[in-house]
Design a protein around this nucleic acid. Sequence first.
DNA 1: TCTGGGGTCCTAGGACCC
DNA 2: TCTGGGGTCCTAGGACCC
Length: 437
Amino acid sequence: MTTQPLTIHSWPQAVLHLDADAFFASCEQAIHPELRGRPVITGKERGIVSAASYEAKAKGVSRGVPLWEVKKLCPDAVILPSDYETYSLFSVRMFEILRRFSPDVEEYSIDEAFVDLTGLRRSFHGSYELIARRMQETVERELGITVSVGVSLSKVLAKIGSKHMKPQGLTLIPGRDIHLFLGRLPIEKVWGIGPNTAAFLRKFGIVTALDFALKDEGFALKHLSKPYQEIWHELNGRSVYPVVKEAKSAYQSISKVRTFTPPSSEEMFIFAQLSKNLENACIKARRYDLAAARLVIFLRSQDFRSNGVELRLDRPSAYPAELLPSLKEGFRQIYRPDILYRQTGVVLAGLVPGSKVRYSLFDDMVKIEKTAKLYCTVDMLSEKFGKHTIYHGSSLPTKSQAQHEGDRGDAAQRKVSLVKGENKRQRLGLPMLHIKI
DNA sequence: TCTGGGGTCCTAGGACCC
DNA sequence: TCTGGGGTCCTAGGACCC
């Protein structure tokens, strides 16, 4: 395999990775002191564990475990819905604290950051360890959550450091000690190495991260593609991933998927799921003022084989009314009545700023403006009354025939109201609406 | 064990052009 | 029409991450 030569940056020489401990659960415990010391779990809205506090982890609860199993493992667990708004506020404040120490902070995810510490020892009159410890303590003191930190020569090594001891760990991996950490680390635990690559590397006798790091460059060039060559350099303490402090720019794509049980092959039901996916994706696109030039549709069958199509749109759009014909066309191409499906998905790709959409002479501007106004109203109503207040008629049959059995009479509206997010409206006694376009 | 949703980047191969 | 070389762009699919 041949690829272009890699650019080796001479720095950062000291990069820190910070990872909040059980972030969502910790935020809940920070806000609700009565939950401290108790097993706390978030993810109620999804039916699986999003985050588990260390008290819950001690009982064997981990990410992704279904909630019914949690009740068995840990009957006294406090199970909460995830409150992303609140966690985002904690996140913002955490990054703000880190930036007091260095301007070079990369917001890697809601609960992780990389910080370039190179050259800071002088201004802090101390070692990198001291700087890291002060960061850690400041976050804990001001936010009431604990974090684990790793410091080393590259991002990949810093990540290994922060994972080494959790919670509240602080691990330095200086160049002379790299082999000590890598020798005990299975190759698949390295950031960027998944099960597939691990299996491939094992064929060459590579079992630990150290086995991999010790391979010569010829091996890396001959057998590996760019991402894995980069990891190989990083493991050897040669930094190739810069700390990127710029805030992440706009989305490249927006996707919505939905998994359902039992699997179904009902045409109406499947299409309604897709229609709902499309509406949800469009809502998000409009919120960021983005329009899609390409639409990807896929259906996943029981054996998790998925087949999909990508359609190029005449003009970028984030309005379901304009995209629905394409959705139908794509659906027709991939739907097979003899297959049981368990998941539908829609991806809006080729995103461009909504303000930059060009219209051609042949576009019906009156209609376009009407559509824009309509969705403006839809978005306003959603803002006011909650998501899914208004939706397309095509999204209506989001319940399978099997589930319909036993229902009767005027149940159509109520059935739809059971779809996630709408039961709240029902409890509050708000009317259910839908519009057909 | 395959839990559920939302992302990114890379590569190979085909289409098309000179 | 074939021969041959070379470049770019696009797309499908793979792999991985949180």
